[in-house]
Design a protein around this nucleic acid. Structure first.
Length: 172
DNA sequence: GTTGAGCGTT
């Protein structure tokens, strides 16, 4: 038996569980929202924008952002390596591997931003669960680091005195 | 050499 330690770790990660699965969240969300909704589809963004691609789209939903979150990178993988790996799939607007400011080394994940959703999807389907520098990387849609810079909540609630917070959920 | 869950600096 000659198994490398990295091979066992690799198999463990593959057979263990996929930490990031956007498809499951959608299913759970859909089931959760359909419990108290009269309409067939309350507020779901139509899967348009991307048309003419009926070739072989498995069961993964289209991306909603050209920014991708790449995880599972090797500690030796840098921005250049990540860029070289995602370059042939489209025009990269930004490529960055997150490195710790204290130690100065890679944290093991990075971000890649394409010019369009098509390129991002192509790169995602072509680079997800693929090998990079000896490690299996995972490509998923990245979350925006800062969506809104806190638009002063004081001006709108100064004449009532009562603050009403309604929990609507993620249905819309 | 640094071995493994996660979402970054302006």
């Amino acid at each position: 038996m000659a198994l490398s330690s990295s091979a066992s770790t690799l198999l463990r990660r593959l057979l263990g569980s996929t930490p990031l699965s956007s498809s499951r969240s959608s299913v759970l969300r859909a089931a959760f929202c359909s419990s108290s909704s009269s309409g067939p589809s309350p507020t779901l963004p139509p899967p348009s924008t991307i048309s003419g691609d009926d070739t072989e789209v498995a069961n993964v939903p289209p991306l909603t952002t050209p920014k991708l979150f790449v995880s599972g990178l090797s500690r030796l993988t840098t921005d250049e390596k990540l860029k070289s790996a995602f370059a042939p799939f489209g025009q990269l607007l930004e490529v960055k591997v997150i490195t710790d400011r204290v130690s100065g080394r890679s944290k093991g994940f990075g971000f890649v931003r394409y010019a369009s959703l098509q390129e991002a999807e192509t790169a995602r389907q072509e680079m997800n669960a693929k090998f990079l520098d000896g490690w299996v990387i995972f490509v998923d849609p990245a979350k925006q680091r800062e969506q809104k810079p806190a638009p002063q909540p004081d001006t709108a609630s100064s004449h009532t005195g009562f603050t009403i917070n309604k929990t609507v959920g993620w249905c819309g």
